[in-house]
Design a protein around this nucleic acid. Sequence first.
DNA 1: CTTTATTTTCAGTTTTGACTGAAAATTCGG
DNA 2: CCGAATTTTCAGTCAAAACTGAAAATAAAG
Lengths: 197, 197
Amino acid sequence: MTLPPLVQAFVLHFGEMGSRWGINRTVGQIYAVLFASDRPLCADDLVERLGVSRSNVSMGLKELQAWNLVRLKHVPGDRRDFFTTPEDVWAIVRTLVEERKKREIDPTLTMLRELLMQAPASDEERHAQARMRDMHELIELLTGWYADMQRLETERLVQLLTLGTKVVKVLEMKDRLFVMPGGRAKKTETRTAKPEA
Amino acid sequence: MTLPPLVQAFVLHFGEMGSRWGINRTVGQIYAVLFASDRPLCADDLVERLGVSRSNVSMGLKELQAWNLVRLKHVPGDRRDFFTTPEDVWAIVRTLVEERKKREIDPTLTMLRELLMQAPASDEERHAQARMRDMHELIELLTGWYADMQRLETERLVQLLTLGTKVVKVLEMKDRLFVMPGGRAKKTETRTAKPEA
DNA sequence: CTTTATTTTCAGTTTTGACTGAAAATTCGG
DNA sequence: CCGAATTTTCAGTCAAAACTGAAAATAAAG
């Protein structure tokens, strides 16, 4: 592995964490190298820096492209494909969350919806279905909220995150000062907060 | 596998998704059975329901305990260990997020902090460090916000999630009406919102 | 259309992780 | 303590995934 020590430490960490993140070591390392690099790299650059086979790099890049985590750049007068990660780390997080949701949550939502349609044939199934309903509601709430957040510009999102729980204070303030202005009624409407707590 | 069809479908799905979630098939299936069950189950119940070896169940339960995802229950007059998942699905999500953060994010934060302390030895390392700084800041912001959320009671948390982006509207309203009351100043203080959009 | 640079695919190999049965350890009732 | 019930550990086996080198496919240049 031919990398400056600092970068190498970063890359090795991403490789090790890869397994916990559901990607393999090489994919994690490729991503780390691209992320830390100050210029686009081609497949052979990665082979040299990581010391893995050319075909392994090819597969890794393909996987990262499937995740939308790398961008293809073309250097004029060079036939090779060069790759980068987006400059904006927020864009990266958005993609990451989006893709993980698609792979790790959406299929479960679909499955739950299907099973909740079926008529339970016993008390055991009735109870199981009640549990699934709880799970389904929770995931729907979370993904709905996520869809809202995904729509925000980064600046507003950062503002919201920075506020943290202070938002709750603001909500309490709002509740104390105003009656809910009649927005389009949703199933789960905001309950008026108790004055203190 | 001896399970009612509806439960079986649920369990098989969890088994298949297991690999995407970073747990193995059996662990996913054990969790699903416990989650859907209307009573605590012992290891042998799981062996019967899932048709896997006793030792596999033992290891699976150990892993779920390490994740704090199952609770040990003792039935009076029975020496065996019985297991359940928490009734409250929100409690489950809290644990899940907490544990995933501990395993998948905290180690990276630590690594980044260490590498950011080192003096860069080249322009390449300087650039890599700048990228790491971006990543570090972003993760700090997200985990800080998460810590805030984790502290909220479930009711307030649900309220917040239900509001979604409507919170932004409330913030804009607040910004228009008041000057920030002088809270303890944090590095990233809320910027006053532009009047519209 | 041919040549050459580059990327992709794939069969075979290696590595890693899951699973099992048997043996060891633990725990509780007597 | 002893012995039965139960759980855990672990060495060996099996299955899945990662990785490689070589061959095939692709794409641009001449």
